[in-house]
């Protein structure tokens, strides 16, 4: 059993059985994190490089912890301390890293396509930890694992994704992933933040949040990326919150046992109220726990095994 691919770059590329393999493997890895000795020797002697060109706490830490729980050695490189500030190109940085013989490079970059470019230029597996507004595949996988664990299924599940769809790689990866697994996806947000033609990805589109969440089994609130709001996609955070945010009052219009997801970091009081984020239906911290298991599964499936015979 192995993913029939060198890299994990997008959910778009993944077939349903590949997603199922990753999720079931991740399910098995959850147990390791519950142990007193949270470590298995599986990837002893392997080196994993986390190359992050964008700030990240959760994702980088999650990949690092996953690597360490598999007994791999994790090396973290962040832009502020790297030679990038001296003007080195990404390709040169990566080629230099590869010369030190890592077994996997995890990369995050503000430009879509950087992981693909690295994957084509490097022999070791490359995992996309988020590229621009393109994809964030490990996030979608952990979201699918979280929903599958809570609902018992993905097939036929109704997911509402609410917020800034335009800039969200999390939304894109999740639309690909959930629709491929047979779930129904509706996206909702202000017209300025819904890219035209997004329905071609197989989701429904609405600008009315109440309509989107009415029949949903799962509501995924997206972070308003305040750092990307220079171009003023909405007038004020307060107005956004009133029209598109999820608070207790709006939650009453959803199904009684609806599940709430958020990829984090949350802006309390903007896209989600504290009462909802910390409430009984919130799976936000389950997502984080599952993230480690999903990333362990990715390392297991991509790094294990003999090198392909040339």
């Amino acid at each position: 059993m192995r993913l029939k691919r060198k890299d994990l770059l997008t959910i778009e590329d993944l077939a349903r059985d590949e997603i199922e393999l990753i999720l079931s493997t991740a399910e098995s890895f959850k147990e390791v994190s519950e142990r007193e000795i949270k470590k298995v020797p599986t990837l002893r002697g392997r080196t994993i490089v986390n190359l992050f060109y964008e700030p990240s706490t959760r994702t980088r830490t999650s990949f690092e912890i996953a690597a360490k729980r598999m007994s791999a050695d994790a090396v973290n490189i962040s832009v502020s301390t790297s030679s990038v500030v001296k003007g080195e190109t990404i390709r040169d940085t990566a080629k230099n890293l590869e010369a030190m013989r890592p077994d996997c490079i995890v990369v995050r970059h503000a430009a879509a396509g950087v992981p693909l470019m690295l994957a084509r230029n490097l022999n070791c597996p490359v995992i996309n930890a988020g590229d621009g507004a393109h994809e964030h595949p490990s996030q979608a996988l952990l979201d699918m694992l979280t929903v599958k664990t809570a609902l018992g299924r993905l097939e036929g599940a109704r997911l509402a994704v609410v917020g800034d769809i335009m800039h969200s790689r999390v939304a894109r990866s999740n639309i690909y992933g959930f629709t491929r697994m047979g779930a129904e996806v509706t996206v909702a947000g202000p017209p300025t933040m819904i890219p035209p033609g997004i329905e071609r990805m197989g989701c429904r589109v609405t600008h009315d949040v109440d309509a989107a969440i009415k029949d949903a089994d799962v509501i995924m609130m997206l972070r308003i990326q305040l750092e990307r709001q220079k171009d003023a996609f909405f007038p004020t955070a307060r107005e956004y919150s009133g029209l598109y945010g999820l608070d207790e009052a709006r939650l009453k219009r959803a199904k009684k046992d609806v599940l709430i997801l958020h990829p984090g970091p949350i802006n309390r009081g903007v896209e989600i109220s504290s009462g909802v984020a910390d409430g009984p239906y919130s799976l936000i911290l389950n997502q984080v726990t599952n993230g480690v298991a999903v990333r362990m599964a990715l390392f297991y499936l991509l790094l294990g095994g003999a090198k392909e015979a040339a």
Binding site: M1, R2, S24, T25, Y300, G304, G305, A306
Partner: peptide
């Protein structure tokens, strides 16, 4: 590290 495929857990 020697088998081509990863055994299922």
């Amino acid at each position: 590290g020697m088998k081509k495929d990863q055994p299922p857990l």
